[in-house]
């Protein structure tokens, strides 16, 4: 279990890097820590990089989906980045769709999308009902 939850501030955004094989407690600790920080720092967006995660089973997926919902309730955007091909196939076969979670190939792409979302026409998003 990591002693310090790996959260990095990048301007108005937070980058959370999950690495290795995490036990349940560590995953829940990270969830807690990230929501605390979003609230404390009024972050605009959270990128969760899971490319270094050894396993993404239904428990971890559920905590991540929950984290995304909480972040949205706190008024920020959240994107999962770096899901590997093997993990993607595994999640689909397992039946975990993470349908309401935004995804991106990597942190850079995720960052770009978030920026465009902020800069873009807000009215374009007004009609969408799937965001939190």
């Amino acid at each position: 279990m990591p002693d310090v939850v790996p959260i990095m501030r990048m301007g108005p955004d937070l980058l959370v890097t999950l690495q290795g094989d995490l036990d349940d407690r560590a995953v829940e600790q990270i969830e807690q820590e990230v929501t605390d920080q979003v609230a404390r720092t009024s972050a605009r967006a959270v990128l969760v990089d899971v490319s270094g995660l050894a396993v993404l089973d239904s428990f971890v997926a559920r905590v991540l989906a929950r984290l995304v919902s909480m972040v949205r309730l706190l008024g920020a955007d959240a994107t999962l980045v770096g899901i590997s091909p093997a993990v993607a196939i595994t999640l689909v076969e397992l039946g975990v769709s993470l349908r309401h979670v935004n995804t991106a190939l990597n942190a850079e792409q995720g960052m770009g999308r978030l920026r465009r979302l902020r800069e873009g026409d807000a009215s374009r998003w007004a009609g969408h009902d799937d965001r939190g």
Binding site: A54, V55, D57, S58, A86, I89, T90, L94
Partner: peptide
């Protein structure tokens, strides 16, 4: 491997 490890975890 990833599928097996995940199934085992479940």
């Amino acid at each position: 491997t990833t599928k097996l490890v995940t199934a085992g975890s479940e």
